[in-house]
Amino acid sequence: MARAIAFVLLASTLFCCQAAPVDRPGSSDVHCPLNVKILDALKGAPAGNVALTVFRQGDDQTWEKITSGNTNIAGEVHELLSDQDFKPGVYRVVFDTKTYWKGEGRASFHEAAEVVFEAHAEGHRHYTLALLLSPFSYTTTAVVGKGHD
Rank of each mutant, 00 (worst) to 15 (best):
residue 110 H to E: 10
residue 135 P to N: 10
residue 134 S to V: 06
residue 131 L to T: 05
residue 87 K to F: 07
residue 89 G to Y: 02
residue 125 R to E: 15
residue 111 E to Y: 11
residue 100 Y to S: 02
residue 90 V to S: 10
residue 94 V to I: 13
residue 91 Y to M: 07
residue 101 W to Q: 00
residue 107 A to C: 08
residue 87 K to V: 14
residue 132 L to E: 04
residue 110 H to D: 13
residue 136 F to S: 14
residue 131 L to G: 00
residue 106 R to W: 08
residue 127 Y to D: 05
residue 93 V to Q: 01
residue 96 D to A: 12
residue 112 A to K: 04
residue 90 V to W: 03
residue 103 G to K: 01
residue 126 H to P: 00
residue 121 A to Y: 09
residue 108 S to N: 14
residue 103 G to D: 08
residue 117 F to L: 13
residue 133 L to W: 03
residue 113 A to M: 08
residue 104 E to I: 02
residue 96 D to L: 01
residue 116 V to C: 11
residue 113 A to D: 03
residue 104 E to C: 03
residue 128 T to I: 11
residue 107 A to W: 08
residue 91 Y to R: 05
residue 105 G to C: 07
residue 93 V to R: 00
residue 126 H to A: 10
residue 117 F to E: 07
residue 103 G to T: 05
residue 87 K to T: 14
residue 130 A to E: 07
residue 112 A to N: 09
residue 103 G to Y: 00
residue 128 T to E: 10
residue 115 V to P: 01
residue 101 W to P: 01
residue 103 G to C: 05
residue 94 V to T: 09
residue 113 A to C: 13
residue 104 E to M: 06
residue 131 L to E: 01
residue 134 S to F: 03
residue 126 H to Q: 14
residue 98 K to L: 09
residue 100 Y to P: 00
residue 106 R to I: 04
residue 91 Y to Q: 05
residue 132 L to C: 07
residue 97 T to E: 03
residue 133 L to A: 05
residue 109 F to Q: 12
residue 126 H to R: 15
residue 134 S to N: 09
residue 136 F to I: 13
residue 114 E to P: 03
residue 125 R to Q: 15
residue 133 L to G: 02
residue 132 L to G: 02
residue 101 W to E: 01
residue 126 H to S: 14
residue 118 E to C: 10
residue 113 A to I: 07
residue 119 A to Y: 05
residue 123 G to V: 10
residue 113 A to V: 11
residue 136 F to D: 15
residue 104 E to D: 04
residue 98 K to H: 10
residue 132 L to I: 07
residue 96 D to F: 03
residue 119 A to S: 14
residue 103 G to M: 04
residue 127 Y to C: 05
residue 101 W to L: 01
residue 124 H to A: 15
residue 116 V to P: 04
residue 103 G to F: 03
residue 106 R to F: 09
residue 120 H to M: 12
residue 109 F to G: 04
residue 122 E to W: 09
residue 114 E to T: 14
residue 123 G to A: 13
residue 104 E to N: 01
residue 119 A to C: 11
residue 87 K to Q: 14
residue 93 V to L: 05
residue 107 A to S: 13
residue 113 A to S: 15
residue 110 H to T: 06
residue 102 K to G: 06
residue 115 V to S: 09
residue 109 F to D: 08
residue 117 F to W: 14
residue 120 H to Q: 15
residue 127 Y to T: 07
residue 91 Y to P: 02
residue 115 V to Y: 06
residue 102 K to N: 11
residue 135 P to V: 07
residue 99 T to A: 01
residue 93 V to E: 02
residue 132 L to Y: 01
residue 87 K to L: 13
residue 132 L to Q: 03
residue 115 V to A: 10
residue 111 E to V: 10
residue 120 H to N: 15
residue 126 H to W: 09
residue 114 E to R: 06
residue 122 E to H: 13
residue 98 K to Y: 06
residue 102 K to S: 12
residue 135 P to I: 07
residue 133 L to D: 03
residue 122 E to S: 13
residue 98 K to V: 05
